[in-house]
């Protein structure tokens, strides 16, 4: 009745999607990230954990050049997406962000209808042309974000009129509509109730069939539940990076242990 199978958290030796080498990030004269080396695997959920101000969000934002919008921010080192430097001059950040999508902590739907929120990306990137094609992308994306049943009868109402949890799932639908290869999530569930959180986690689990997901979270239990790889950041350093199983049962660095077990120091 019950087949013996590998636990779902087991990590396959899959290809490396993003490789970061000696990454340093400065805000003016302050160094926010110190010499971070990390390989993000394809078709895997990787979580970044660490105390506030440790640099995990800053590092996440480097992966799709969101830091470009901050004038004082300077990124050094190399970040390779499928072996190609994303900071090379010929790379168009807008195209890059279609490949590396992002979901933020606070839901930020466009002041447009639910339908247009989702259709926006595929339209500007020319991924769907006819009305039927766009309809299909919108429905599929909303279904994958577990929102379709709740909004299918009011697609033309404003996205901003939805509840917080629904808005966040709308933003996820918007992010997956462009069929990104990597999805970055910066505390996507911090404003959601447990049910919406579970729906988002279920979605993350489904998304990893197709691409890699990187999630920043303050919830240890969320990191343990959804990710196969965990990176612990502290004061701008990547202290420990490894299988989530190991990090949560037998971490090698005492700073990681103190943090995940809720100890002082």
């Amino acid at each position: 009745m019950f087949d013996v199978q590998k636990p779902e958290t087991a990590v396959d030796q899959t290809a490396i999607k993003i490789a970061a080498r000696n990454v340093q990030v400065f805000y003016g004269n302050t160094q926010a990230i110190k010499d971070v080396d990390v390989d993000i695997q394809d078709k895997t959920v990787t979580s970044f954990i660490g105390p506030s101000g440790c640099g995990k969000s800053t590092f996440l934002r480097c992966l799709n050049r969101m830091n470009d919008t901050i004038d004082s921010c300077r990124v050094e080192g190399e970040i390779l997406l499928d072996g190609q430097d994303i900071y090379a001059p010929r790379v168009d950040p807008v195209q890059l962000r279609a490949r590396v999508g992002m979901v933020f902590q606070k839901p930020n739907p466009f002041p447009k209808s639910i339908y247009d929120n989702v259709a926006y990306g595929p339209r500007i990137h020319g991924m769907a042309r006819t009305k039927d094609e766009i309809d299909e992308v919108v429905e599929k994306s909303l279904r994958r974000a577990a929102l379709w049943d709740e909004v299918k009868d009011r697609l033309d109402t404003p996205g901003t009129g939805l509840s917080g949890g629904q808005q966040q799932r709308l933003c996820i639908a918007r992010a997956v509509a462009t069929r990104p290869e990597v999805l970055l999530m910066d505390e996507p569930c911090s404003a959601l109730d447990p049910i919406a959180t579970a729906q988002v986690e279920e979605l993350i689990d489904e998304l990893k069939q197709r691409f890699s997901v990187v999630i920043v979270t303050h919830s240890m239990q969320q990191a343990a539940r959804v990710s196969q790889k965990t990176a612990f950041f502290h004061l701008g350093n990547l202290v420990e990076y490894g299988d989530t199983n190991t990090i949560f049962t037998n971490p090698q660095d005492h700073r990681t242990e103190s943090y995940i077990t809720g100890r002082i120091g």
């Binding site: 049962t249 037998n250 971490p251 990681t256 242990e257 995940i260 077990t261």
Partner: peptide, 9 residues
Amino acid sequence: RAPTAGDLR
């Protein structure tokens, strides 16, 4: 408490 690491052990 959902203990982890050394606490879990």
